[in-house]
């Protein structure tokens, strides 16, 4: 069954991938082992899981300004999510997405995106249209 979720206009290109979802937040500096491509902060709900090539779905972005450069650095090594969806992004992650040309959207009309999408869902993200499609068969 296909499900269409409207969100605010985002940044980056249209992409398709598998969702990795948690009701938790995101900082590239605080939460990740960027060399290995996994969440590394013990308190994070995705600790130990790989974010490589995933459509990450999280609540909000946290913490430091470094995340903006870090998205660009992660993208340059191709150990990077395909897209990140938030309930609310902060400015830094949007800025980092703009530099890295990483797909990012936030502000979903139908409520909490971490509940609307499940881990393992196949998802198409179209930031220009502000549209996320869940295409599970």
């Amino acid at each position: 069954m296909t499900k269409e979720l409207k969100c605010h206009k985002g940044i980056g290109e249209k992409v398709q991938g598998i969702a990795l979802v948690a009701d938790d937040n995101f900082s590239a500096r605080y939460d990740l082992d960027r060399k290995k491509g996994v969440f590394s902060r013990p308190a994070h709900k995705l600790c130990g899981q790989s974010y490589h090539d995933k459509i990450l779905v999280l609540n909000t972005s946290k913490g430091g300004v470094a995340s903006a450069w870090m998205l660009h650095e992660m993208k340059s090594r191709n150990i990077c999510p395909k897209a990140i969806l938030f309930n609310t992004a902060n400015t830094i992650l949007a800025q980092g997405a703009a530099l890295a040309n990483l797909t990012m959207c936030d502000r979903f009309e139908d409520g909490d995106v971490t509940q609307l999408i499940q881990t393992g869902d196949e998802v198409i993200v179209d930031p220009e249209q502000g549209l996320v499609t869940v295409v599970n068969g």
Partner: peptide, 14 residues
């Protein structure tokens, strides 16, 4: 903020 750990080689090149 432009420390080498966050920028990496890619940021240096940029």
């Amino acid at each position: 903020m432009a420390d080498p750990e966050s920028l990496g080689e890619a940021g240096g090149d940029f």
